[in-house]
């Protein structure tokens, strides 16, 4: 495998990581290839000795998983004094914390609201399409299950069928877009978290000339 192929594969298997992190990881392997080439090795040989890019990517992903799990459980080891100092700090900082908390709740609330709005919109459009279709069944309107405006009865049946299909398709599309939007949102938030963590840990790397 050539150097370029190897690095491309590695990038591919690291695709769940934020780009900053991928760049950092790939830089290490670029360095490895450069030194290997300087020492007279062929790209093929270096790739072979490095081993499968998939295995390597998996180990990086495992590392991050472990680190995330550690941050979550790391709070158990709090001593009593720390808790007391923490509580005092919280009381003192209430005037500062409350507005921040308010903003956070507002932001989260906005997104939750948006989720429900999209779901509701999809359902409403879907229901309208189904209702239109049902209105084609003779006598359905007279059953008065759904309050259907009388004008609907005057629309041509073919128009109604096409409109319903369009509405139902539209609702599915809306739901799909909604789901993908939130998947994207969730992934971006996760990546933001990993990037911040990565940057903080990287403080140790300094230039020494």
């Amino acid at each position: 495998m050539s150097r370029q192929e190897y690095l491309d594969l590695l990038k591919y298997y690291l695709k769940d990581f934020p780009s900053v992190v991928v760049k950092d990881i790939v830089a290490d392997y670029e360095e490895h290839f450069n030194i290997g080439l300087e020492n007279g090795k062929a790209e093929d040989q270096i790739s072979q000795e490095l081993g499968s890019p998939e295995t390597i990517a998996k180990q990086f992903l495992e590392n991050e998983g472990r680190a995330l799990a550690k941050t979550n459980t790391g709070k158990e080891g709090m001593s009593l004094s720390k808790i007391i100092i923490g509580s005092i700090l919280v009381v003192l900082l209430i005037p500062v914390i409350l507005p921040i908390l308010g903003v956070l709740v507002g932001v989260v609330g906005t997104f939750v609201g948006l989720i429900f709005a999209i779901i509701a919109m999809a359902i409403a459009i879907f229901a309208l399409g189904v209702a239109l279709l049902l209105s084609l069944i003779p006598g359905f309107l007279s059953l008065n299950i759904v309050a259907m405006p009388a004008v609907f009865a005057q629309i041509h049946p073919i128009t109604i069928i096409f409109t319903s299909v369009a509405l139902i398709s539209g609702s599915i599309l809306t739901a799909g877009i909604g789901i993908n939007f939130f998947k994207w949102l969730f992934k971006s938030l996760k990546n933001l978290f990993i990037t911040i963590k990565w940057k903080i840990e990287k403080r140790g790397v300094r230039d020494e000339k």
Partner: peptide, 24 residues
Amino acid sequence: SEGTIYPLLRRIRTEGYVEAYLKE
């Protein structure tokens, strides 16, 4: 498998066992 050294270095750096610095 030589490539596994870099994930390991990354991990022990996170654990605080080693520090990294760049040198020309």
